[in-house]
Design a protein around this nucleic acid. Structure first.
Length: 577
RNA sequence: CGGGGCAUAGCUCAAUUGGCAGAGCGCUUGGUUCGGGACCAAGAGGUUCUGAGUUCAAAUCUCAGUGCCCCGACCA
C-alpha cells in the first residue's frame, strides 16, 4: 500500500477531549475520529487493526468448534420480555420504535436472539453441543462514555453462546473457551490475567474476566502473592474471621453527637477507632427494608449483599424510606431496637463486642451496643469490599492489587435463559430436557485500545506484530532525484508481498523527519529505509520500532526472507485453523 | 438525573470595556531546502453551535435549545 494514496490524517496535537493515552494516540495516528459522545468513525488504518484482532478471535473460536453467525442489531421487544430483561436492563438498553410504533432495542448483547434461534432449530440431543458466535456492533447507552473506544457506547464485540445437553458438558466446554481466550489475548501480544468475576446482569452460576494489566484500567484485581487465586475486587471472597467477641459489660448508653452522622465524624468525637463502630446501611428488597451491618472501617459490596439477601434487584433506601423505617435522620440508625428488621451482618461484625453506632435518634449515637444482647442478626455473610489487608481466601497468603482493563468475560449461564425461553431438546429417551448454556464475550475494539495502553512510548504506538496494521513500513527518501529508488522499492515490495508480508510504503513527497515521525506514531513494528545513501552503499536500513539503532542489511533478495522469518511465528499460529 | 464548565478555521487556541474575525500547526501554489515534525513568499479556508432578545453596534450581554467535557448519583 502506498501512503501517497492512503487516508492517514495524523495529528501533531491530541484532540482536547481525548482523555487517556490510547484515545489520544488513536486519534493522532488517524485510526479513529470522534463523531459524538462514545461513538467513533474507524479510518482505514484503525479498521485494519480491528480486523486483525477479529481474525485472531475468529481463528480461535473456529478452532474450538464455533460456528459464525450474524444476528440483528435491531431486536424486537417481545424476545426481551420473555426473559424479563426489557424491564431489568434499564436505561443502558437503547430503545427505539418503528413507524408502526412497535418497540425494538439496539442489541447490547444477544442471549435472547440466539436462544430463540436455537430453540427453533435445534431439537435433538444429536445436535448438541453447539457453539454459535458473531462479531458485531453492540450499543450500550453508557451514562458516561470515556477513554475513547475503551468505554464507548457503540463498540465491536465478539459474543459466543454454547448450548449443551447437561451441566457436565457445559463445564468442560467452558474450560475449552477459557483456554481459547488465553490464546487469543496471548496472540494479540497482551499481558493479561484471568480473574474470577461477578456475573452481574448477564447472570449465571460463575464467570471469569480477562484483564489486561494496565495502570489506567478501570477494574481492580485482587491477586494472591503465592497461589494462583485472582479475582475482581467486586467478587473477591473474604473468609469468616472467627468467633464472636463477648458482649460489653456495660449496658447501652446514648450520647449526643450533633451534626455528626458519618463514622468519620463520630470517631473524631469519641476518639475510638473506626473498627469499634457498627455501620448500618438500609436497602430495599421487594419493597421491604433490610439492614446491612458492617464494621465502621469496612465498605459494603452491594453485589455481595444482593447475593446474601437472595434478590438481585436490591436498591439503597431513599432518604424518605430511611426516615420512615428507621425513625431517625440518615446517619443515626443502629441495629438495636428494630425487632422486625432483617439484619445481614458482615463476618467482621463478630469482632465488635460492644460497638458504637447510631441511637435511632437525631443527633445521637450509642455505645456498648452488643450482639445477641441488644440486637439479633439474620446471619453473618461476606458483605464487604476486599482490602489490601485481607489474606487470600484460598491459601491465606498476602494479596496484591492490580489495575486492569476487562477485554473478555466468560459466563457459565446454566439454564437461566433456556428455562425462561423454553429452549429444550429431546434426549435419547425422548424426554424433553432444558439446554444448559454458556456465553462468552470479547471486546474487540477494546482490545485495540488496551494494546495501545500497554504498548506505547513518547513517539507513539508500539504494536505487537500480530495486530499491527502493517508489518513493515518502507520509507523512501530522495525518490524525486534518484532514479534508482523507485525500481528498488518496487522490487523489494514485490518480494515482501509474495511472502505474505504486509508493507506500507511511504512514498509521500515529504521531509524525512515528517515520515519518520508518522511511522513511529502509527507504530509499524518493522521499518526499512531506501535512500540515495543506502543505494550508494547497496544496503537497506532496518530498524525495529522502539529500538534506537538501525541495522544495515545488504540490499538483496535475502531481505525479504529475513523479514518473513521474523514474522514466521505468526504463520505458524495461523495454521491453527 | 443533579452540580459545574466549555462551544471561534481541519487540529490546538487567542480576540482588552460590547466596536474591522485572528495566531501557530495543517492544507494549496511557487521558490530555497532535504536522514528525525525546515525556511521564505503568496493563497484557500468562518452561519464565531442553533434560535430569539437587548443595543447605533454582539464571538462578547440575556433567554431558550443542542452538543461536548468534568464531578457526583445511578448502573454492566
Amino acid at each position: 500500500m502506498k501512503l501517497s494514496r492512503y487516508l492517514l490524517p495524523t495529528l501533531r496535537e491530541a484532540p482536547a477531549d481525548a482523555d487517556n493515552v490510547s484515545a489520544q494516540l488513536m486519534q493522532r495516528a488517524g485510526m479513529i475520529r470522534k463523531l459524538g459522545s462514545g461513538i467513533y468513525d474507524w479510518l482505514p488504518l484503525g479498521l485494519r487493526v480491528l480486523r486483525k484482532v477479529e481474525r485472531v478471535v475468529r481463528q480461535e473460536m473456529d478452532a474450538i468448534g464455533g460456528l459464525e453467525v450474524s444476528l440483528p442489531v435491531i431486536q424486537p421487544k417481545n424476545l426481551w420480555e420473555e426473559t424479563g430483561r426489557w424491564r431489568i436492563y434499564g436505561k443502558e438498553l437503547l430503545r427505539i420504535k418503528d413507524r408502526k410504533e412497535a418497540e425494538f432495542c439496539f442489541a447490547p448483547t444477544a442471549e435472547e436472539v440466539i436462544t430463540d434461534l436455537v430453540r427453533r432449530d435445534v431439537r435433538s440431543w444429536r445436535q448438541l453441543p453447539i457453539m454459535l458466535y458473531q462479531i458485531g456492533l453492540k450499543f450500550r447507552d453508557e451514562i458516561r462514555p470515556r477513554f475513547g473506544v475503551m468505554r464507548g457506547r457503540e463498540f465491536l464485540m465478539k459474543d459466543a453462546y454454547s448450548f449443551h445437553p447437561d451441566e457436565e458438558d457445559a463445564s468442560s466446554y467452558y474450560r475449552q473457551v477459557y483456554e481459547a481466550y488465553k490464546r487469543v489475548f496471548s496472540r494479540c501480544g497482551l499481558k493479561f490475567k484471568p480473574v474470577e468475576a461477578q456475573s452481574g446482569a448477564i447472570g449465571g452460576s460463575f464467570s471469569h474476566e480477562f484483564m489486561v494489566l494496565a495502570e489506567t484500567g478501570e477494574e481492580t484485581i485482587v491477586s494472591c502473592s503465592r497461589c494462583d487465586y485472582a479475582a475482581n475486587i467486586e467478587r473477591a471472597e473474604i473468609k469468616d474471621a472467627g468467633t464472636a467477641a463477648p458482649p460489653s459489660s456495660h449496658s447501652v448508653e446514648d450520647f449526643p453527637t450533633p451534626g455528626a452522622y458519618s463514622v468519620e465524624d463520630v470517631s473524631r468525637i469519641t476518639g475510638e477507632p473506626k473498627s469499634r463502630f457498627l455501620k448500618t446501611q438500609i436497602y430495599m428488597a421487594d419493597g421491604k427494608p433490610v439492614m446491612a451491618l458492617l464494621r465502621g472501617d469496612h465498605e459494603l459490596n452491594e453485589a455481595k449483599l444482593a447475593a446474601a439477601v437472595g434478590r438481585p434487584d436490591i436498591a439503597r433506601a431513599s432518604e424518605e424510606q430511611y426516615v420512615k423505617f428507621m425513625g431517625c435522620p440518615v446517619g443515626f440508625a443502629g441495629p438495636q431496637g428494630h425487632p422486625g428488621l432483617p439484619i445481614y451482618a458482615d463476618f467482621a461484625v463478630k469482632s465488635v463486642g460492644g460497638g458504637v453506632t447510631g441511637a435511632n435518634k437525631a443527633d445521637t449515637h450509642a455505645r456498648h451496643v452488643s450482639l445477641s444482647r441488644d440486637y439479633q442478626v439474620r446471619g453473618f455473610f461476606d458483605l464487604r469490599q476486599a482490602t489490601a489487608e485481607d489474606p487470600c481466601p484460598r491459601c491465606g497468603s498476602r494479596t496484591e492489587f492490580f489495575k486492569g482493563i476487562e477485554v473478555g468475560h466468560t459466563f457459565k449461564l446454566g439454564t437461566k435463559y433456556s428455562q425462561a425461553m423454553a429452549a429444550s431438546y429431546l434426549d435419547k429417551q425422548q424426554k424433553p430436557q432444558v439446554m444448559v448454556m454458556g456465553c462468552y464475550g470479547i471486546g474487540v475494539s477494546r482490545v485495540v485500545a488496551a494494546a495501545i495502553e500497554q504498548g506505547h512510548d513518547a513517539d507513539g504506538i508500539v504494536w505487537p506484530l500480530e495486530i499491527a496494521p502493517y508489518h513493515v513500513a518502507l520509507v523512501l527518501l530522495d525518490e524525486a532525484d534518484d532514479g534508482r529508488i523507485r525500481p528498488a522499492a518496487d522490487k523489494l515490495v514485490g518480494e515482501l508481498e509474495s511472502r505474505g508480508v504486509e508493507v506500507l510504503e511511504d512514498d509521500r513527497d515529504a521531509k524525512p523527519g515528517v515520515k519518520f515521525k508518522d511511522i513511529d506514531l502509527i507504530g509499524i513494528p518493522l521499518r526499512l529505509v531506501l535512500s540515495r545513501k543506502t543505494m550508494d552503499a547497496k544496503i537497506v536500513e532496518f530498524r525495529r520500532r522502539g529500538l534506537k539503532e538501525p541495522e544495515r542489511w545488504p540490499l538483496d533478495q535475502q531481505v525479504a526472507d529475513k523479514i518473513a522469518r521474523m514474522l514466521s511465528p505468526l504463520h505458524t499460529l495461523r495454521t491453527v485453523d
